[in-house]
Structure formats: C-alpha cells, structure tokens
Design a protein around this nucleic acid. Structure first.
Lengths: 278, 278
DNA sequence: TAGTGGTCTAGACCACTCA
DNA sequence: GAGTGGTCTAGACCACTAG
C-alpha cells in the first residue's frame, strides 16, 4: 500500500489537503495549527475515532517542524479533542459525550446505573489504616492531597467520631461503557464494612444493608484540577487534562459520618447535574 | 550585580543548589525536574510568591537543555503551582487558596460578598441578541460552546418562553482580592433589565427588585474543562489550566426562566460547596 | 522490521519588561 | 540594553506497536 497521506477512502472527497498556514500573524504557529486541526475535526474532515495523519506527515504538510505539530496535538489532547497512542498514532476522540450524573443517589455507581448506563467498578487497591485517634493523626495520610490542597480544615477531614477504630480506604475506578470515567477513593470505618460485600456493587449499599442504616449525602464540594501522571494512566487521558473534583461525606440517619469520598472525574466525560425541587 | 543563581538572600541557608538529576530511570527528565521543583516549593525552599531561577540558570543547574526545563515549568504552571510572566520570570504561585462558594445565593457575586470577600465585578461586554423566536434560532449563538459541548439538548437552552423579545448577554469577570477568579456569562430577557441598574452590583438582584420577583436557582451543572487562550488571558492562568464549569438557570417564584448563567472558574481558586440540610 | 509517538539537544531569533 | 520567557528549527535517539 503506497497510500499518500492526503488520500483516504471514506469522506475523502471533502478533505482538504494539509497546506502551510500564514505565519507570523500575531498568533503562534502551533496555535494556528491547533485551530486548523480542530476546525477540520469539527467539519468532519476527520471523523470521530479516525486516525489523524502522523506527526511527521502533518509537519511536512504544514511545512513546519515536528515539534510545532506536537505542541498543537498536545493541546488538543489536553482539551479532549484528540487521543494519542504511543507507537500507534493520534485519533479524533470519539464523540465527547458528557454523561450526566444526577444527584440523589448515595454512590456514583448507583447514580449511573439508575440511568441505564453500563457501569463497571474496577478495584485498584484496598488499604487499611490504623485508628487515627490512637496514632494522633488527623485521619488518612496522603488522601488530602488527592482531594486537592486546602479543601477543608484538616480537623474536620477523615475522622469518624462515631465509629472509632481502624479505617479502610478503597481505591477504584469507574468505567462507563468500558471507557475509564472516574478515579475514586472512599474511606470508611473498618468495622462497618461487611465481610461478604460483593465487590461489584456499591460498598455504601453494603454498609447500609448490613447495619440497617439510611445513608445520605451530607455535603459535596466541587472543584477542578489537572490530571497527574497517575490519573492520566488510569483514565486514559493526557497529563494535565481537566478533572472534575468531587468530594463529599456520607452520613446515616443519625447524622453520624460514615464515609468520605473523593472522585476525580474526567471533565470531558461528565457533568454533574443538580436540580433544585423548590 | 554579579549574584550567582544559587545564592540568594532570604531563606537561602536551607536552599539546596540545583544539581543534575539521575537520568533514564524510567521517568522522563522533564517529569523528574517537575517533581524536584515541586518538592522544593513544598519544602519552602522557594517561598510563595518568590521568583524562581531563570529557565537558563535552571537548565544550567540541572545540566539539561532549556526546553526540558520549560516542559517542567509549563506542567507546573498548568497545575497552578507556578505562574509565569513573559519577560519577567517564573514565580511560585501565592498560596493556592480555594475560596469556598456556598450555595444558596442567586449570584456568584453575592455568594462571595456574603462571605466577606472583597469581590469586584468587571464588565467585558454587553451584547444584544434579537428575539430567538423571531429568527428561528434556538437562542444565543456561540454561547453553547462556552458552556461546553453537549451540556444539554439545544431546545431547552437559551430561550425564555415567558419573556419573548430580544436578549441581553453580559460578559464579565469576577475578581477576588483583585485576583481574577472567574469568567462569567449571563443571558437575560432584555425587557427585564432595568435601565438604572448599578453595574457594580448583581444584575439578578436588579431584575428581582425592579419586577418584584423572587429569583432562585433552578438547576446547576458542574463539569471541568481546559482554559482556552481567552480564558488564560482574562484569568491570568496558563492555557490548558483546569476550569470548573458551572452553568445554571435562574427562575422566579412562578417557575419562569429568567436567566441562564455560565461560570468558568479557576480550578485552583475555587471550590463549590453544597450542604444538604436534610 | 517499519512506522509511530516520546524525549532531548543545541542553537537561533523574537517579544516582552524593566532599569 | 540586559535579561527574561515564547517560539521554532533540524536532527538525533529511544520506546512502543503492529504486521
């Protein structure tokens, strides 16, 4: 196959060849290329999921250095418009549908399931922490960083006055239609989690059932942060891509704190909707 | 002044000199440098607000090319740890305090004011749009992009069934303690906005007062996206920095839609807190 | 093995800020 | 004008993926 970069099968008739852009007009070359590529994607010259020309051929087409093209592609990848695979190529991101999270359910897993989505939970790690009261700590070390810095005063974070003893921290991720969707952390008092909990289901429901508790969300905090290397690897996104940070507390019917939760949700795939019933 | 890069006045006694890092150990050089700089910032070797060594001297110290240092600094800037000024230098970002937005107030301006913050509103633009019903449009063109793509079905967006006629779109930004904090868009029916509205105050309050309406939030939608060039310029952040996207609807006591609002809030400076009263 | 993206270099020139 | 960051180049080498 000697296929030239500018000629392809489907939709090729409306595809314009990549040609050099006007230079030095106030905007950087990489930004002009970024805009041009985004424009072509929006015009469906490159269909969703389709592979873009290689960096080398793009650089050749635009008449620029490969590093300049890379800068443009990196920016598009961060914005979620393009997905890049090492050794394979760059692809137009499949329709960046933002799945709506409706408020009300105790767990994100349940929220999505109740909307008929194919949601799956994949456990990364289970960590047991000693009783924070006994060690004099303020709670689970290192977890505050995951929730962003300075989100709350330390004293009110990560302790369970009503349920002393060791804690369990669950690290897992949610996949929606097999697409990584969010990286989550949950901290609960160890004593509350039943032994026979089905790992495919929500731990919060298991706790509620085992102890006859009615759990509800006490508060939520929303912010945004950049994906770090770990987020990027787990969620299949670029380093620096925007994440919706959602942290919250679950309490039971007596107002006792039962769980702390932190979700790091792909910004390009999620929207959290809150309707005020009046 | 012949000051060597490794020697400075305040806090210098605990500052380690910049020396080459071990190479090729699985992680990229730029990432190792990023981590090293972040570590030094956290250890207060570089105090908040302090100027970092120049890119050239960092490259010299680490024994790498300047581009490698730039990659590290760019990543730190996106994450909000560092702020870079063209022609001046790079600085440790002043304490990245996330100001909490408490839910309940109709306007973000009022939310922050009620917490005793020095908030100021800076108007960028006022745009009048023709009656969407008359032109057959679905509302305000271009605004959907600002709210992110696919946030809602178009039919329910940007139209005011109860208040026909032209629309006004306000583009403004909020500053908190004179630091750019969020870029906002509000769309209202033109007929509702009083002529004598004091531009320093909330337009929503002006509308409520003028027509004796009780406004409340009907819904909110949260997501995250990357700052574009315009965001970056207005909010004084790096392109690609994470923004908290908050869009919502205001209705009056009869349930009539009175305003659509979109906020693009700096992720490093804001946290939206929601407390469920039970 | 060929083709792709990821990293890094050495150097050039420009744009901006400030003394 | 000196010093800073911003852009861009030409080229090298490596790591990864696929046929």
């Amino acid at each position: 196959m000697t296929a030239a970069a500018g000629e392809m099968g489907d939709g090729g008739e409306r595809r314009r060849p990549i040609t050099p852009l006007p230079r030095g007009a106030g905007t950087a070359l990489w930004d002009a290329i970024r805009a041009d590529l985004l424009d072509r994607i929006k015009r469906l010259e490159f269909a969703a999921g389709e592979q873009l020309p290689s960096e080398a051929s793009l650089a050749d087409g635009y008449g620029v250095n490969r590093m300049t093209v890379r800068r443009a592609l990196a920016e598009l990848a961060r914005a979620g418009a393009v997905r890049t695979e090492h050794g394979v190529g760059s692809f137009v991101a499949p329709q960046p549908i933002r799945h709506r999270i409706d408020d009300g359910n105790i767990s994100l897993l349940e929220s999505m399931n109740s909307r008929g989505h194919a949601v799956r939970q994949e456990h990364q790690q289970v960590i047991t922490h000693p009783d924070p009261a006994a060690t004099g700590d303020q709670g689970v070390p290192g977890l505050a960083q995951l929730a962003g810095v300075g989100l709350s005063s330390p004293s009110e974070l990560w302790t369970f006055p009503a349920f002393p003893g060791p804690l369990v921290e669950y690290r897992y991720k949610l996949l929606l239609d097999e697409v990584p969707w969010c990286r989550s952390f949950a901290v609960l008092p160890s004593q509350l989690v039943p032994e026979d909990w089905d790992r495919d289901k929500s731990v919060f429901n298991a706790v509620a059932d085992a102890h006859d508790l009615q759990l509800r969300r006490d508060d939520r905090r929303f912010s945004a942060l950049a994906a770090d290397a770990r987020d990027a690897a787990l969620l299949d996104i670029a380093v620096g891509a925007p994440l919706l940070l959602l942290s919250g507390t679950n309490v039971d019917q007596h107002g006792r704190i039962v769980a702390y939760i932190v979700h790091r949700i792909r910004g390009d795939r999620a929207e959290y909707a809150l309707h005020v019933p009046r």
